[in-house]
Design a protein around this nucleic acid. Structure first.
Lengths: 245, 245
DNA sequence: TGGGTTATTGATCAAATCGTGAATTTCGCG
DNA sequence: CGCGAAATTCACGATTTGATCAATAACCCA
């Protein structure tokens, strides 16, 4: 049985602290030692991200990651101390960015609507950043999303602390919903968010089931089909649930 | 990296085929060798179910299960051949029952409504069996549900074949929705089911996040609060999505 | 009561896994 | 060039893991 996983623990026992500067141009083909190092770190994280998203943390060995990134296993320890460190780095690499994008989208909408937000606009603003990245963010983002889906449906899976990276945008979402539905009860809005989260999460998880169920009529990662429907779905749901007495 | 997992594979290389008769009175305190054997098998499956639901398959070792069930590891191999066999048995033990209960509930409603089903009644019938068991099915069912939530958000996790155990009730659900919403498009109903599934799944997964987000106002496993809200949510969502043109 | 079958344990193996420390390469820079 | 530091590889040890096989305990029935 694995030790309980506390992501965002202070990086425990790494001997030589590597630079870990902000990975600004990790993808650019800049030369130089630091740039090269950052590129290999990114390659390692890409490999880990993909493998974790398919098999979960405990289903992937450090060797698996090293093989796929085409480096020695010791290098993973050098850069990330241990497996938990890799997992943590995988999550942190993208968590902040997506949350910030959501914040921006919500703030933009809050401004654009002139103080009178409506449910559909809020939901759309909240959901769009993810779908945009699912479509155009490259395979890396899709792997990340699938990993989040996994983590989201189980505690102790990088659960606890990492999810808090998404909390601020959620609170902003609910704040706007309060404005749009002043009569709605607090708890109902939170439950509403829970349902949004569930449906959204399943949408980008690794789950083909709908393809078989619909006999091929729906394709699991047809995000162009999912996004508008999910917006309508959540809008109607929130309005209904917000009208509870 | 684990071998790809095909649950419901023919039980591969067990040497001595144990009886495996229908575990009718597994919980009863019946005496006799067979009954005792069935009880220990149940103890093993209970332990595996709980551990798997927290840590996932690869996060639990055969030893962990044996320790918790208070038997020798060799006994697990004797009864279930290997780890995959245990995982398979854990899922199969309850999958059929819950699907059957859903079928019954849907059929009952189909009769009761006199050929004129409405969305809310259908959704309620589909959802109720799970919530009833979540509340009164004992801790075992809750563990099972959390495990399903894990499996549902990742393929290769006992994904493929086991999920098909739930398919017939889903098809029946959609069939009834077609009656209730004759103008709705086929694909929209399937996407609707996908959203239902996502929200429901998250509801019984191991995910406390809503407690922190709502600052304690919502409790993650307050199924009495969740069920009616989820029914309203899904009803409104399906109606909205079914009205697409 | 005792022999035969089933259930269960004890001891152990080979492979895989995480992690470490020393060696080696790569690079920046004087 | 050549020195020093960072990045990367190599070789290896301790532990865990899934699995097997023989030995024992529990039970049933003749």
């Amino acid at each position: 049985m694995p030790k309980p996983r506390r992501v965002t623990d202070t990086r425990s026992g790494r001997r030589k602290p590597p630079p870990r500067r902000a990975a600004a141009d990790a993808t650019t083909a800049a030369s130089g030692k630091a740039a090269r190092s950052r590129r290999t770190q990114a390659r390692i994280l890409d490999a880990a991200e993909e493998l974790f998203s398919y098999h979960g943390i405990y289903g992937v060995s450090i060797r698996d990651i090293a093989d796929r990134a085409d480096v020695d296993t010791a290098l993973l320890h050098y850069h990330f101390a241990n497996k938990d460190g890799i997992y943590e780095a995988v999550l942190l690499r993208r968590a902040g960015e997506i949350n910030a994008a959501r914040m921006r989208a919500l703030d933009d909408y809050a401004l654009a609507c002139g103080g009178k937000p409506d449910v559909e606009g809020i939901v759309r603003a909240y959901l769009h950043p993810v779908f945009e990245r699912l479509r155009n963010g490259g395979r890396g983002f899709n792997n990340f999303a699938a990993l989040i889906a996994l983590a989201n449906n189980s505690e102790l899976w990088g659960g606890g602390t990492v999810k808090e990276y998404f909390d601020s945008a959620v609170q902003r979402l609910i704040e706007l919903l309060r404005l749009a539905l002043p009569k709605a009860r607090e708890v109902d809005l939170y439950w509403g968010y829970q349902f949004i989260s569930g449906a959204l999460t399943l949408s980008y998880s690794r789950n083909d089931r709908i393809e078989g169920l619909s006999r091929g009529r729906c394709r699991a990662n047809d995000y162009a089909a999912i996004e508008p429907r999910l917006v309508e779905w959540c809008t109607a749901g929130i309005r209904a649930i917000g009208a509870r007495r």
